[in-house]
Computed example of a mutant assay.
Amino acid sequence: MAKKCYYITYIACNGATGDAYLCSEGISYVPTGGGCGGGYFLSDDLGFNVGNASERSGTVTVVSCTFCPGCCTDAIADKYDCLNGNCVKDSLYKTPGLYSTISDCENVCGTGCGGKCISNSDWAQIEGFSGQLKNRNCS
């Protein structure tokens, strides 16, 4: 199971409060009404269970992996651009990624790109530069 970064907050039975960022396969807060009246955090891979913790209250939120370095990687959603009537991933030509979904791009792009196409002369210039650079050693 893939790990995620979790942010937990709690109020302990003695009234102390705390929070933490934890890397885990899964964390949940189970309200029980037992112990001091609240519940407990449950995480098999971290060893949290009913026998070793009881809290008055607690929250669990999945947060960005940047809060748990080395834990996980946030999914990077593909973005798209319209180039000469075709929707392409922004990573293909390192374009800005104006559209967050393929359907958004296709709605605007259609045939002729809705006015956002590169002109034929600009495209010819890009192809010319590309041809010139093809045989250069850039190291």
Rank of each mutant, 00 (worst) to 15 (best):
M1D: 13
M1S: 15
M1K: 14
K4E: 08
I11G: 08
A12W: 04
A12L: 00
G18Q: 06
Y21V: 02
L22G: 01
C23L: 08
S24Q: 08
E25L: 02
G26F: 08
G26W: 04
S28M: 10
Y29K: 01
P31Y: 04
P31H: 13
G33C: 08
G34H: 14
Y40C: 04
F41D: 00
L42M: 11
S43F: 04
D44V: 08
L46R: 05
L46M: 06
F48D: 07
V50A: 15
V50R: 10
G51Q: 03
G51H: 14
A53C: 05
A53D: 11
S54H: 11
G58V: 01
V60T: 10
V60G: 05
T61I: 04
V63A: 09
S64C: 07
C65T: 02
C65P: 01
F67G: 07
C68S: 12
G70T: 07
C72A: 09
D74G: 04
A77E: 03
G85R: 10
V88H: 06
V88S: 10
K89M: 05
D90Q: 13
S91I: 06
T95G: 02
T95H: 06
G97M: 01
S100M: 15
S100W: 12
T101N: 07
I102W: 07
N107P: 11
V108I: 12
C109R: 00
G112Y: 07
G112D: 10
G115N: 03
K116D: 07
I118P: 00
S121K: 08
W123N: 09
A124R: 13
Q125E: 12
S130M: 03
S130N: 10
G131V: 06
K134R: 05
N135P: 09
R136A: 15
R136I: 14
R136H: 14
C138R: 11
S139W: 10
S139F: 15
